[in-house]
């Protein structure tokens, strides 16, 4: 699989797919998309990068171990649920704020934080499995 064409295009492809996965993640609340699908797209992007340029390159570019990313996502998701504690509503109640940044109204919410957590859990766990499998192949 390590043809020069593939190795040349894979980083661009990966970058595009990760960007697209973030787009899917952010549009997910009211439209198709969300953390799970976004995470799958990002994980497959990393898998492509791994097939083209090797597992070591992926691990270096991720900086954190995939399992740590997963754990951070889990932590973020729980924290998103706990944010309803200070306002005195039920666990995991959706809280929304609409700040205006540069003339655009942004919809920020705890479901978004939760979704980012899901995204990280999926990216971390799937790419951890995928990288392990790719590593095994090269042995």
């Amino acid at each position: 699989m390590r043809t020069i064409i593939f190795r040349f295009t894979a980083p661009y492809l990966t970058a595009l797919m990760v960007l697209f996965s973030i787009f899917v993640l952010l549009r997910g609340h009211n439209e198709p998309g969300g953390g799970f699908i976004g995470g799958l797209i990002a994980a497959s992007a990393l898998a492509i990068y791994g097939i083209a340029c090797g597992v070591v390159a992926v691990r270096r570019s991720l900086h954190f171990h995939p399992m740590s990313i997963s754990a951070a996502g889990l932590f973020l998701a729980v924290v998103a649920g706990l944010l309803s504690l200070p306002v005195g509503s039920q666990f995991m109640t959706g809280l929304w704020v609409f700040p205006t940044v540069f003339g655009t109204e942004l919809a920020l919410s705890t479901p978004l934080i939760f979704d980012i957590g899901v995204y990280l859990v999926v990216v971390g766990s799937i790419s951890s499995i995928a990288l392990a499998l790719e590593e095994r192949e090269s042995d």
Binding site: S68, A71, A72, L74, F75, V78
Partner: peptide, 13 residues
């Protein structure tokens, strides 16, 4: 449940 998940996540990190 929340305490278990928080500590599990921190320990994994």
């Amino acid at each position: 449940v929340v305490v278990c998940l928080v500590f599990g996540a921190i320990l994994l990190m």
